[in-house]
Design a protein around this nucleic acid. Sequence first.
DNA 1: AATTGTTAGATTGGATCCAATCGACGGGCA
DNA 2: TGCCCGTCGATTGGATCCAATCTAACAATT
Lengths: 228, 228
Amino acid sequence: MSAVAADLAGLVRAVGAPRYRTATEYVEATLKAAILSGALAPGTPLRQEELASAFAMSRMPIREALRQLEAQALVDFEPHKGAVVVQITLLESLDNYAIRSALEPQALKLSLPHLTEADFEIAEDILQEIDGEGDVGRMGELNRRFHMTLYAQAGLPRLIALTEQHLAAADRYLRFHLAAAGDMGQDEHRRLLAACRARDEGEALAVLAAHHHRAMEATRAFFAARGQ
Amino acid sequence: MSAVAADLAGLVRAVGAPRYRTATEYVEATLKAAILSGALAPGTPLRQEELASAFAMSRMPIREALRQLEAQALVDFEPHKGAVVVQITLLESLDNYAIRSALEPQALKLSLPHLTEADFEIAEDILQEIDGEGDVGRMGELNRRFHMTLYAQAGLPRLIALTEQHLAAADRYLRFHLAAAGDMGQDEHRRLLAACRARDEGEALAVLAAHHHRAMEATRAFFAARGQ
DNA sequence: AATTGTTAGATTGGATCCAATCGACGGGCA
DNA sequence: TGCCCGTCGATTGGATCCAATCTAACAATT
């Protein structure tokens, strides 16, 4: 069994078989999680035949799933050569950063007026969970849930989906080069939440921008350290 | 021959057969153009068998193309029910507007320092073309090219692609309910270009925001006039 | 020795076939 | 009369098969 097949075997069990309406949906969700979590490393070639036997189905659902992942910029697809998990480069990180620091303030601005105390409590709980969490992968997911809780009331499905998509990609970058991570910016998280509670849009946006900026500088430093 | 098949026959000729590496690529590009141009009206069901015979191929490339279009939010895909050209609703318009007014200023900010006189001349030429253009569909494309010329030097491929994608979707909305259009905001276009030439970021962003705002108000008015 | 042409295996792209699901219609029953 | 349920045609989801293309190794030629 190849490395890819072995990695997937675990994920197939983790995600579980139920509640997917089609095989394609199931494959797409599983591969997406595998790529974002780092279980499938950047540059890994995704052979259709191999995935088909790992998922115990034919190549067809695999192909359709790969097409969708391509449109989400999670795999690179070259005709007659196949799919490869997208690389992590400085350019891609900068790109992602530029997109997030445009979308997230917009989402927050639109969501803020509709956030309720219930939302703030959920966000608070997530922050506490992060404090007690050791696993980096799990911390990434909690980080995402914290931010999305604050954006969720924007009420615009596509804006929210795009934001979440790019937030997830950012987590992937961070996990990849901050491996042992440690601090996710809990201090900033708390200040952001406090500003939202006070309905202080200016302050909230400023903290968010600083949060983005700090993460980006960490990324830049990482690439600089290993000689571009 | 059904209405969909007839519409497509024209488009197949218009786009031309060449320079596509796979049938899937070709179908995707053609359908995308058809949806964005309005040739395929919102709500039109896209039957795989029908498309297959219109394109003179099997259902398989059609299926893969539809999957990619789904990920780009150009068609709605329901398991066992098939694909439908996405509807145009007020919510979707607001959503698109929120995304564009976040992404475009970011793209412009990053691009502005790298724009050259050559870029400005290209933009100027496009504006002149718009003045002499009668066809609404063609005006939409020129409008898109004008904006993208100003954003192109941002140097971040994904940001640029996302921006173009949502600008194209916006053109679709405008074409749909401003049917006979007329003014695309040429006045604002000229002021935007002038501000860019003067490297006046603040002014450029202000004009761009006003441009977005005006377009959105037109959309809102449209939906209000026909009873939400 | 380097380069080019050729050939075999691996892999993807596309076609065809079968199975599963949906929607509409119509008959049975309260 | 109105509702439920089963059947049938249409349509999509998935499997299997064949064709086209790529990659790498090897042979031939300069």
